[in-house]
């Protein structure tokens, strides 16, 4: 648990989060969301929460992203905001 590393990861997470809600292309947004989840997952591993990180990796970043992508394919990639 090194706080510098922690801080950098957190910074990336925030950037990913902002990017995910601000890009216009929904597919990119969803991929960014997956990235966000993976970064979170790293953070949690680093904090000692291996089980949660494992779950987030499989559930949040894995299945969650897949579901989002499927939904984007079934609806539309275009977004006004």
């Amino acid at each position: 648990m090194i706080w510098q590393l922690d801080l950098i990861l957190l910074l990336f997470v925030v950037i990913c989060g902002i990017a995910a809600i601000s890009v216009k292309d929904l597919l990119s947004a969803v991929i960014l969301l997956g990235l966000y989840s993976f970064l979170m997952c790293l953070l949690w591993t680093e904090m000692g929460a291996v089980d949660v990180a494992f779950t987030e990796a499989s559930v949040g970043a894995g299945i969650g992203t897949v579901l989002y992508i499927a939904a984007v394919y079934k609806t539309t990639r275009r977004s006004k905001d």
């Binding site: 809600i21 947004a29 904090m47 000692g48 949040g60 977004s79």
Partner: peptide
């Protein structure tokens, strides 16, 4: 955009999870 709302929802919930994990450290 409804999809954006959902993305926001995920970010929101994940942030809460981050908070909880921080408690446990």
């Amino acid at each position: 955009n409804l999809m954006k709302k959902l993305i926001g929802m995920t970010i929101f919930q994940t942030a809460i999870i981050l908070f909880y994990i921080s408690i446990g450290v």
